[in-house]
C-alpha cells in the first residue's frame, strides 16, 4: 500500500465514490461506491448486485468492469487499451476475486477507502495486487486508507439497520 499522496483529483473522485456509497445506503443497498475513471471521464460505476443476479461474484467492481466493456463497445475503443489506463476509485479495498480481475485486466491503479478485513485482496487477507503470480495479468498500485473511518461508518450503519431482529450475531460481507 502506497503512502497517502492525496491529490485534488483523487479527492474529487473519492468524493463521488462516497456519494455513491451514501446513495446506496439511502436505498437499502450495500454502501460501497466504485468508479472507473479513464482520462477525465467516468466510464463505469457499480454497486453490489449479488442478490439481483443470484451470482455471488457480482461485486461493485465486477459490475463496473462490465460497464466499461459496454462503454468501449459504444465508443469503438479497444478495451485492453482502456483498462490499462483506468484508475479505480472504491470506498472499500477490493476483495481477492476483484483484485484478481483487476490484475487480469491490467488496471494500473486503485484508490480505496477502508480495508476489507474479511476478503481483502490488496494486503488485508492476501496481497493479490502485489504478489508475483504467473499468467495473471500485472500487479497494480494501491493507495489505501482515504477516509477509511467514513467508509467503515457507512458499512456499520448498513449492517445495523438491515436486520434489526437478527436472531444471532451475523458474520457479514463487506461488499
Amino acid at each position: 500500500m502506497e503512502p497517502l499522496q492525496i491529490t485534488e483529483e483523487i479527492q474529487n473522485w473519492m468524493h463521488k465514490a462516497f456519494q455513491m456509497a451514501q446513495d446506496a445506503l439511502n436505498n437499502g443497498e450495500v454502501p460501497v461506491g466504485c468508479l472507473m475513471v479513464y482520462g477525465n471521464q467516468v466510464v463505469g460505476k457499480g454497486r453490489n448486485e449479488v442478490n439481483e443476479t443470484k451470482n455471488a461474484t457480482q461485486h461493485a467492481e465486477m459490475v463496473a468492469i462490465d460497464q466499461v466493456l459496454d462503454w468501449c463497445e459504444m465508443n469503438s475503443k479497444k478495451s485492453t487499451d482502456v483498462f490499462e489506463n483506468i484508475v479505480l476509485y472504491v470506498t472499500v479495498e477490493p476483495c481477492i476475486m476483484c483484485a484478481g480481475a483487476l490484475r487480469l485486466l491490467k488496471i494500473p491503479l486503485v484508490v480505496y477507502g477502508c480495508r476489507n478485513e474479511r476478503f481483502g485482496g490488496c494486503g488485508s487477507v492476501l496481497n493479490v495486487s502485489g504478489d508475483d503470480i504467473p499468467d495473471t495479468g500485472t500487479k497494480f498500485k494501491c493507495i489505501g486508507g482515504y477516509q477509511a473511518e467514513k467508509a467503515i461508518e457507512l458499512l456499520k450503519t448498513f449492517y445495523k439497520q438491515e436486520n434489526p431482529n437478527a436472531p444471532k450475531s451475523k458474520v457479514r460481507k463487506k461488499e
Binding site: 476483495c95 476475486m97 484478481g100 485482496g121
Partner: peptide
C-alpha cells in the same frame, strides 16, 4: 482455477 476464479468459487460456497 486462477485466483479470481478460486475466490469466486469461495464466494459461491
Amino acid at each position: 482455477p486462477c485466483i479470481m476464479c478460486a475466490m469466486a468459487l469461495l464466494h459461491s460456497r
